[in-house]
Design a binder for these strands. Structure first.
Length: 704
DNA sequence: TTTGATCAGCTGTAT
DNA sequence: ACAGCTGATCAAATG
């Protein structure tokens, strides 16, 4: 960690160590209490099935329920966290009692309705019978989700945990989003909560938080399409965020200056609420986050972070400088006015004098989806200057000049470089081949080496598709759908959608909606057009990829474009072979490019039911040794950012099974794409384990 | 739309 | 008088 403030920093004699002072704030509101689970009866489900018993800490508690927080810290994990707090040098970092934490002021306590409200609100929603029908679809999907575990532990607890909302006549107490959230939360590996409950965030806590958020948001998005009248489903992103915050599934809930543990410079985000969930920037919309704002007191408000949405950008082409416009002066009803030196503006002003670091998020329009934005965490800046300016509308606005602290890894600069390459203003250095695919793909994939003298990978034929020379008959005959205009959400008659549990596999943006083990796409026997939303993996490459020379892993794959979690990246092309041929190739030591669906792997350790290999109609082996696409260059990692899913395309006459790769999380440009190769159940004759050099903390040491 | 900051008002306790 | 909590209001601008 480069910006290690606090405990270790020794102030120079006579100097005033500001960071030391800035890092500590008095408690202003409720601090979470983490009872030890020493009394097992206090858990409503000892197996960790229901970690979220939500009770107001002040009571009263229903019978059998004791004051519990959403997650607990077991004595073991507490010891673990203390151990983990040892620095590599062996120095012990005191983790400190939890009461030293500075919770974000509005850290909310989970609530639970204890009165008889439940029945009435449900009854209200059920009238008319329409809800019952939708409810049926929810149930169907739950059955599907339960598929992995097989046991009946996922019984839905009909929504008791409605967040009280003012007004709206209780309409928002509709159980569905909460019920969906509870089901997802319940399926989370309990160990995750140990990680999340540690006062100091970690990379894992950030990763887990964002992963749960993704799963929940996409599920709510699916719901919204089929049942638009569900309260809170209009904005699945906000609803998912709100549910996470209420349940305390977040990282770094205390607001602090400087670096945020577990968040790395260059990390990208697609929703403002994500910044809140990981502790980068608390306000869901406002651009300036600050603390301590008692104006009249001697205590000064100080800014901790800003989000530059790019709207005001004053064309400073230097990527290390940002001109930021203050907030306010744009009231919708009262019209425009001068900005005032208060709130965020005042905090920035004070921060300039104090010289504290400001976290900066750069917002850009997402080129893949121009309606959306992508936010880049660009590290720490200092405010160098401020002035007042007349805006175009004639009113005064505050301007702040921020300069990036030196010595930080490039983040926003990478984006600027790529933009230059795209606009041909600057050449990509080290290009060996401008298009590795020889136009076999719709967009070029360049081959780059700016590391050593290697001139390129061994010869192979680029083929964007999967070749199955001996196709077998499908396990069940299927006629396909007849959605002439493309499959539409809510069409209960579409057989392809029914196969996916009543929903479309992909969102309107082409994001994989569900982590279920098999994706059923439309195929040759369907009547929908190639543009159908349920054919995402058939459209070829959409992301600008490059094959590049890694430092120690041969050739690898990465992207010029940012990749949003759930995005389809590519399929594994090559030649389908049978088990006998696999054994032959292994014997000849020619198994480097074999994709083997029967390997055991752990795709997402956050959902225990997901640790098994996906259930595939039949084992699938693909060799890309002589013929293949970009996927053959993707390296293994024990902490991957990409996963694969079996994709079945509807085809009457033959089995049409493919392997498709999707982003697990948001992947910044130029970050290597990796997936977990998994491990074979038993080594074949002549097969040996390959040493892994992924460098991850969780590295297993080998793969094969 | 939601969140977080702020303010006004309330309550019980200490002075 | 004061701390601490609760509910109402406000500002911010997202997707």
């Amino acid at each position: 960690m480069e910006h290690n403030f606090g405990q270790h920093s020794v102030p120079a004699p006579g100097s005033f160590d500001k960071s030391r002072v800035l890092n500590i704030k008095p408690i202003r509101t409720l601090v979470p209490v983490f009872p030890s689970p020493s009394n097992p009866s206090s858990l409503s489900n000892p197996n960790g099935g229901a970690p979220f018993v939500c009770v107001s800490p002040s009571g009263p508690y229903p019978t059998g329920v004791e004051p519990l927080y959403p997650f607990f810290v077991s004595p073991e994990s507490q010891r673990l966290s203390e151990k983990n707090a040892q620095t590599p040098g062996g120095r012990h970092v005191p983790t400190g009692p939890i009461s030293n934490a500075v919770p974000i002021n509005s850290f909310r306590t989970p609530t639970r309705d204890t009165n008889g409200d439940v029945g009435s609100s449900r009854g209200k929603n059920k009238n008319g019978g329409q809800f019952t029908e939708e409810d049926g679809y929810v149930e169907m999907n739950e059955v599907d989700a339960d598929d992995g575990t097989g046991d009946g532990s996922h019984k839905r607890k009909s929504g008791r945990q409605g967040r009280k909302s003012k007004g709206a006549g209780g309409a928002s107490s509709n159980a569905n989003p909460e019920a969906v959230a509870n089901d997802i939360f319940k399926s989370i590996n309990p160990l995750v909560f140990d990680v999340l409950s540690q006062p100091d965030g970690s990379r894992d806590s950030v990763t887990y938080t964002l992963l749960v958020y993704e799963v929940l948001k996409r599920k709510l998005g699916q719901l919204e399409e089929t049942a638009r009248d569900i309260a809170g489903a209009k904005r699945p992103d906000l609803k998912a965020g709100a549910l996470m915050l209420t349940k305390g599934i977040r990282a770094n809930s205390k607001k602090s200056f400087g670096a945020v543990s577990g968040v790395e410079i260059g990390d990208i985000f697609y929703f403002r609420i994500e910044l809140c969930l990981v502790g980068l920037h608390a306000p869901s919309m406002a651009g300036i986050d600050y603390i301590g704002s008692k104006i009249s007191q001697e205590e000064e408000p100080l800014a901790v972070s800003i989000v530059s949405s790019g709207g005001y950008e004053d064309n400073v082409e230097d990527g290390d400088v940002l001109i930021y416009t203050g907030q306010g002066g744009a009231n919708k009803e009262k019209g425009a006015s001068d900005q005032k030196l208060e709130r965020g503006n005042l905090a920035l002003e004070k921060s300039m004098h104090r010289g504290n670091d400001i976290r900066v998020m750069r917002g850009l329009t997402d080129l893949a989806h121009p309606t959306g934005k992508v936010y880049i965490y660009d590290g720490l800046y200092k405010i160098q200057n401020t002035w007042v300016e007349k805006a175009k509308n004639g009113f005064n606005v505050f301007k702040y000049k921020l300069v990036r602290c030196p010595g930080q890894p490039a983040a926003y600069m990478i984006w600027k470089s790529i933009q230059q390459w795209t606009e041909k203003k600057a050449p990509r250095t080290g290009v060996i081949l401008p298009d590795l695919t020889s136009s076999a793909e719709k967009i070029p994939v360049c081959l780059v080496n700016d590391v050593d003298d290697e001139k390129g990978p061994a010869y192979f034929t680029y083929s964007p598709t999967l070749k199955n020379l001996k196709p077998t008959a499908p396990m069940e005959s299927f006629a396909g759908c007849s959605c002439i205009g493309g499959c539409q959400p809510g069409n209960h008659n579409c057989p392809c959608m029914q196969k996916n549990g009543g929903y479309l596999s992909y969102s309107a943006m082409g994001i994989l909606a569900d982590l279920k083990s098999v994706v059923y796409e439309c195929g040759p026997s369907c009547q929908c057009p190639p543009t159908c939303r349920n054919r995402v993996s058939q459209g070829g490459l959409k992301i600008r990829l490059e094959v590049f020379r890694t430092k120690d892993k041969g050739w690898g794959l990465r992207s010029w474009d940012p990749i949003r979690a759930g995005t389809f990246i590519c399929e594994y092309a090559g030649e389908v072979i049978d088990n006998a041929r696999v054994e032959e190739l292994v014997g000849e030591n020619e198994d480097d490019y074999i994709f083997d669906s029967t390997r055991i792997y752990q795709q997402l350790d956050i959902f225990p039911s997901d640790t098994e290999a996906p259930k595939i109609p039949s084992p699938l082996y693909i060799t890309a040794k002589n013929e293949g696409n970009v996927a053959r260059f993707m390296n293994h990692s024990c902490s991957p950012n990409v996963l694969w899913r079996p994709v079945v395309r509807e085809n009457k006459n033959e089995s049409d099974l493919h392997v498709a790769f999707y982003a697990i999380r948001h992947i910044p440009p130029m970050m290597e794409l990796t997936y977990d190769y998994g491990t074979v159940l038993s080594l074949k004759a002549g097969q040996k384990k390959k040493k892994c050099s992924c460098g991850s903390v969780k590295c297993r040491g080998y793969f094969c």
